[in-house]
Design a protein around this nucleic acid. Structure first.
Length: 111
DNA sequence: GGGGTGACGCGTC
DNA sequence: CGACGCGCCACCC
């Protein structure tokens, strides 16, 4: 029944792992891929509890503005920016150009 | 079972 | 453009 929520975190992590290098996804986008667009908050919650940054590249997740997280668990926003740049993503003042780097394949796959 | 919290999103002022 | 508030869902105590 409604107990599908049990694997929400796991589902979120799995989606984050699918984000290709050089691209980013928004919380809302991941939430949509996970099943519900309203899960945006839970996505953030899940990433906050992310146990393995190497396995789950949570740094590729930004908010709808393309802004990096100020509470990035693995070293703060500065760290997240460095990781994004390492992927070849241009980050200006902590903001990523979504029109350029957003993981649109994920949206396409949604349908 | 109840209440508070949060790495969001979106509408309003 | 910035600040504020509400909703939404899962998690922890």
């Amino acid at each position: 029944m409604k107990s599908a929520n049990r694997g929400t975190f796991e589902t979120i992590y799995e989606i984050v792992r699918r984000i290709p290098k050089g691209q980013v996804a928004t919380y809302g986008q991941i939430a949509a891929l996970a099943g519900n667009r309203r899960l945006a908050r839970v996505v953030g919650y899940a990433l906050h509890a992310n146990p393995d940054g190497d396995l789950t590249p949570c740094y590729r997740v930004v908010n709808r503005e393309g802004r990096v997280s100020k509470a990035f668990v693995f070293g703060g926003e500065n760290r997240q920016i460095a990781l994004l740049r390492a992927d070849g993503i241009e980050v200006k003042d902590g903001v990523v150009d979504l029109s350029r780097y957003q993981w649109k394949e994920g949206l396409h796959h949604l349908f």
